[in-house]
Design a protein around this nucleic acid. Structure first.
Length: 209
DNA sequence: CTCTCGATGTTCT
DNA sequence: GAACATCGAGAGG
């Protein structure tokens, strides 16, 4: 019998901490997607950003609680999925204790199992020539892993349609950080916080550090 | 490589 | 109307 990896989900306590601890530790972890029709997609998380509370003007919760961001205020360890720019679904892991809105945005994944079932962008040319970049961006990874609004609020701490398992440890020198992407308009100091974490020089990064 | 711009829908002013 | 945690095409260097 082939020793197949168990991919046990990370426990809820992992996510029930400050997102500034959770986000960097998610780098290197494994995202597992069970497709409705059968088939499993897996990939290594190589880039994550932290969004921390109502005071963080780049966080969706900065203007208070709304129907859209309700999940952010709930139990840690759940998926917060929302529609961005009218056409991309972005995947977050809710962090901190319930009632405190914080989440880690998963921004890029190195494809592992099930690559043939990952959906490329509308342009075949880009991803066909660089298959390792099929999930190299928050919108692209959701498309590749078939993540949409139906997965909002699902539990990432239990086997189901989507969960996160521990990966191989990341050497400290391979973990790099820098300012978050696409949050210029949040203004200082929020657009300058070095709350983006990733694997040094990894080809699947959405943008180089 | 860089820059610019349109797509597309929900939320806020 | 404008803004928005994005992406990819097209033009230009």
């Amino acid at each position: 019998m082939t020793p197949r990896r168990a991919f046990l989900p990370l426990p809820r306590e992992f996510f029930a901490r400050s997102v500034l601890e959770v986000a960097p530790e998610l780098v290197g972890a494994i995202l597992v997607r069970e497709l409705p029709g059968g088939g499993r997609l897996t990939g290594r998380i190589v880039e994550v950003e932290a969004y921390d509370g109502e005071r963080d003007l780049a966080c969706h919760a900065s203007r208070g609680r709304t129907p859209r961001n309700e999940t952010l205020y709930g139990e840690p360890g759940r998926a917060y999925v929302y529609l961005c720019y009218g056409m991309h679904f972005l995947l977050n892991a809710v962090s901190a204790k319930a009632g405190y809105p914080a989440a880690a945005l998963i921004r890029a994944i190195e494809p592992l199992d099930g690559r043939e079932a990952m959906r490329p962008g509308r342009s075949v040319s880009v991803t066909a020539s660089r298959p390792e970049r099929i999930a190299s961006g928050p919108g692209r990874l959701s498309r590749a892993f078939h993540v949409d609004l139906s997965l909002n609020r699902i539990d990432l701490c239990a086997k189901g349609p989507l969960w996160i398992a521990p990966g191989e440890p990341v050497r400290p020198r391979d973990l790099v950080r820098g300012p978050r992407i696409g949050v210029e308009s949040a203004g200082a100091p929020w657009n300058r916080k070095a709350w983006r974490f990733g694997l040094r020089d990894h080809p699947a990064l959405s943008v180089r550090f």
